[in-house]
Design a protein around this nucleic acid. Sequence first.
DNA 1: ATTACTGTATCAATCACTTAATACAATAAT
DNA 2: ATTATTGTATTAAGTGATTGATACAGTAAT
Lengths: 118, 118
Amino acid sequence: MAWNLDNDRPIYAQIVERIQLQIVSGIYKPGDKLPSVRELAAVAGVNPNTMQKAFGELERSGLIITQRTSGRIVTENEHMITEIKKELAKEHVERFLEKMRELGFEKKEIMALLESDK
Amino acid sequence: MAWNLDNDRPIYAQIVERIQLQIVSGIYKPGDKLPSVRELAAVAGVNPNTMQKAFGELERSGLIITQRTSGRIVTENEHMITEIKKELAKEHVERFLEKMRELGFEKKEIMALLESDK
DNA sequence: ATTACTGTATCAATCACTTAATACAATAAT
DNA sequence: ATTATTGTATTAAGTGATTGATACAGTAAT
């Protein structure tokens, strides 16, 4: 899997999004052990501090849990995971509609564009 | 009008988007004269150099035209404006669908979410 | 006890962006 | 002609975020 990190956004933020996505989409399952900071940093080709910062964010949101010396696991609170998934979807929907309306598109036109896109 | 500039993205980039939006959505019309660098910088509360940089971007994309000593105007090429508008819309649509699919949503579900959002 | 693995903390270096202070060139207005 | 207003260019400094290097602390395994 490619990490696809670009330079126009903070790397740690891109990592946060990536791991978050892997959790809510079920690639990482509740209770799964995550690779260590150093290991994942090596895989991604970033500095351990950067990975540490990303993990810190994920921890604050509650998606992952730190066990001081044995590593980190994905939360077993499945409800929280589905809530976050719904929340992310909602944000995307609202941001998208907002942007399209700014451009001057009506709801009907927006739906038509979406249909035609595939 | 509030400029609504935040700190987590380059200011010049936000200004570019803002003016671009004002052009494609018809707030600034083809041939309209734009405020001077210094004037707009003062209004927005940014350094003239920052505004200059934003204008430079808009110029490169062709949306605005510089008249060396009399100021800048919006391009009178209406076709270009509508093309850019379509291009922006397309980008939003594709980015949105991509993000939703990453989250695990099918086309049908996406459309349903959009309908329910209002 | 020693080793090897965790996460964590600290400090410095780097980088992009912004701001700042000026200066210059061209033209419209007077 | 003079003045004011355009856009443009240059150089320096400041600022904040990110990254990098390294050391520290705790615990499981042996």
